[in-house]
């Protein structure tokens, strides 16, 4: 590779072949993410992609960046630790709806609230795929499955409004099949200071084949992104769930990371114990 040539999307892809089902929306997300990283002119070694457990959480190994495929539900704490310890790295946390909103739900609230400069991408297919199709927090109440015959009867969790209420600084919805739009959203999210959250509707062709219809339901929001949380909340709460684009772009104060300067030595710290 010519070192001076700008990197292309394909330079961010690893040689590992995904295990995702053909037709899965996550392939689109992988493409969009590599395109965004190329657009952002990051080097692969300057980016870390951190995930938990689930189909979409396999994404780090399919990239040529640094990656960490951790345990179920804990990707945000892993990413938080890395970003605070290494603010020079671009940290992208990625995973699915079960990983992020069920087992990892508490971390989601506090990551939004902490507002550390990282990007959280949730590939939402409203189902647990790795365990063969159980309802997730975003699944419709009447979706029938072996674990919840006749449906859960529970209202779906609304990640966008929860992100907004918890303090996220950038809230967006994307559709995996809209590669150009998703690429732009990811690159805007990475550039925006503080915690950026993108819910990417990403169909599961195996357990939710009806989600193929999402393609025709998707549309751009009728108005521009707002920095007013109340307006954003109203829009998110009242739209049809298929608006894609930036829904909130705020200027909430990002988490303050130490300056990394050695103001004192360890010997200085020891003084307090001397008699």
């Amino acid at each position: 590779m010519n070192v001076s040539a700008p990197l292309k999307a394909s330079d961010f892809k690893s040689d590992l072949k995904p295990v995702w089902c053909p037709g899965c929306g996550d392939y689109h997300v992988l493409l969009s993410l590599t395109k965004a990283l190329a657009d952002l002119e990051r080097k692969p070694e300057e980016v870390a992609v951190i995930s938990g457990i689930g189909c979409s959480s396999r994404i780090p190994a399919y990239l040529k960046c640094y990656g960490f495929h951790g345990v179920h539900g804990r990707s945000l704490p892993l990413g938080t630790g890395l970003k605070v310890a290494r603010p020079d790295m671009t940290v992208i946390v990625a995973g699915g709806d079960g990983d992020g909103f069920s087992i990892g739900g508490n971390h989601f609230l506090h990551a939004c609230r902490r507002n550390i400069d990282l990007t959280y991408i949730v590939m939402d297919n409203r189902v647990y795929g790795m365990t063969k199709g159980q309802p997730s927090p975003t699944t419709e109440p009447d979706w029938d499955s072996a674990l919840s015959p006749g449906g859960t009867g529970l209202n779906p969790f609304h990640p966008l409004v929860i992100a907004l209420a918890s303090g996220a600084n950038f809230v967006a919805r994307a559709f995996s099949g809209d590669i150009r739009g998703t690429t732009k959203l990811i690159s805007d999210a990475v550039n925006h200071p503080g915690f950026s959250f993108i819910q990417i509707l990403s169909p599961c062709v195996t357990f939710r084949p009806e989600q193929k219809e999402w393609k025709s339901a998707i549309h751009a929001p009728p108005v521009e992104a707002t920095d007013d949380p109340a307006r954003a909340a109203r829009r998110i709460m009242t739209d049809d769930g298929f608006n894609v684009g930036v829904l909130y772009r705020g200027d909430r104060r990002p988490y303050k990371i130490g300056d990394g300067v050695e103001h004192k030595t360890v010997a200085d710290l020891e003084q307090e114990f001397q008699i």
Partner: peptide, 25 residues
């Protein structure tokens, strides 16, 4: 040297691309 957003495709990505969502194993 164009960024992905600078390409003037009529659709969400380049025209001569097989649609990924139509794949099946």
């Amino acid at each position: 040297n164009l960024k992905s957003s600078e390409y003037k495709w009529p659709d969400t990505e380049g025209p001569e691309l097989a649609a990924l969502d139509e794949a099946h194993y």
